[in-house]
């Protein structure tokens, strides 16, 4: 039986860009046959952190599912699950929460995205002046709880998720010393390129990046606007195109840009020509959710016994 690997993602920005792809998605696709992979799209986190964007979360989440499939994730082997569809997760959070110190959670919150926001930034997002209980608790232990609940042994993604590793270790130590249920501490599976530079040389986000589903014209235009060609070298390396990376040094600026644009236009073709409908994507989510729910229920049952509660 293959070991379980969890790869968490935030769907709030919808269409994925090269930073998402090279920083995490590509590596996951490359290793999907070695593990039983669960891609966790944390739409609950998106809803809690961005109340202003709630009407857009479903469409953006489906777009992310589409990008994963077009990137090569095999839905027959790997699972794509939304946190909002896992009622067992919220029981887990409640039970696991009993071994997480509130002050520890508050400290984690203070260095998290929401905790770092100034009052005027919270207002921009429609977040209340004071953080809610959900805001303090869920973003810190939601992903750790689903990972432990799925009995994952591996945890994969970009460097922004590495903080969860120590949270999971803290939970496992706290819970296992007091209870019969024993959790495994998941090992972090790093990406080959966890820090991907955008077209302006800064950390890639949508604004300075290139969307996987961008049309040919946009790809060529954005590549032509790049000022620092060393970024192409980083991208080629992340794509595993060592030869192109070395060749780059011998090319003129114009030729290097044309070469990179041609490469991207060709490589990203499956994203532009997607034929998947919402129905197809919902079916993929539905079948994935069943197996995730089974695993989480198994964990919940064991924990209910720890708590002296009935399992019907």
């Amino acid at each position: 039986m293959k070991k379980i690997l969890v790869s968490p993602h935030n769907p709030i920005t919808g269409p994925r860009h090269l930073g998402h792809y090279l920083g995490s998605m590509k590596d996951l696709i490359d290793i999907q046959n070695d593990y039983e992979c669960y891609v966790i799209l944390d739409d609950m986190l998106a809803s809690l952190m961005y109340p202003k964007e709630r009407s857009k979360i479903i469409n953006r989440t489906l777009f992310v599912v589409q990008d994963f499939i077009n990137a090569g994730l095999d839905p027959k082997k790997s699972k794509i699950v939304l946190t909002s569809q896992l009622p067992q997760l919220y029981e887990l959070i409640f039970l696991i929460g009993s071994v997480v110190d509130f002050d520890y959670c508050k400290t984690l919150h203070s260095s998290s995205f929401c905790g770092l926001l100034k009052h005027y930034q919270r207002r921009d997002l429609n977040l209340k002046f004071h953080p809610s209980t959900s805001e303090v608790v869920y973003p810190q232990i939601g992903i750790p709880c689903v990972t432990l609940g799925l009995q994952a042994e591996y945890f994969q993604g970009g460097e922004e998720i590495t903080g969860y590793i120590s949270t999971m270790e803290e939970i496992v130590d706290g819970y296992s010393s007091l209870n019969k249920t024993q959790f495994t501490k998941p090992k972090y599976v790093s990406s080959a390129m966890p820090f991907v530079k955008g077209l302006d040389g800064a950390y890639m986000i949508q604004g300075n990046g290139l969307l996987l589903s961008a049309d040919e014209k946009e790809i060529r235009q954005k590549v032509s606007e790049t000022k620092d060609l060393s970024i192409f070298g980083q991208w080629y390396s992340a794509f595993g195109e060592k030869n192109n990376s070395e060749k780059l040094l011998s090319l003129s600026e114009k030729a290097a840009k044309t070469e990179m644009a041609n490469f991207l236009v060709d490589y990203l073709k499956p994203f532009r020509e997607s034929k998947l409908t919402n129905g197809d994507l919902l079916d993929i989510i539905e079948s994935s959710t069943k197996s995730a729910k089974n695993l989480l229920s198994e964990t919940c049952e064991s924990m209910r016994e720890d708590f002296g509660l009935l399992n019907l």
């Binding site: 998290s112 995205f113 973003p139 460097e159 922004e160 986000i205 949508q206």
Partner: peptide, 11 residues
């Protein structure tokens, strides 16, 4: 600060 922030996006 990224591992503490847990995420990166447009903001």
């Amino acid at each position: 600060m990224l591992p503490g922030a847990n995420m990166v996006d447009e903001n």
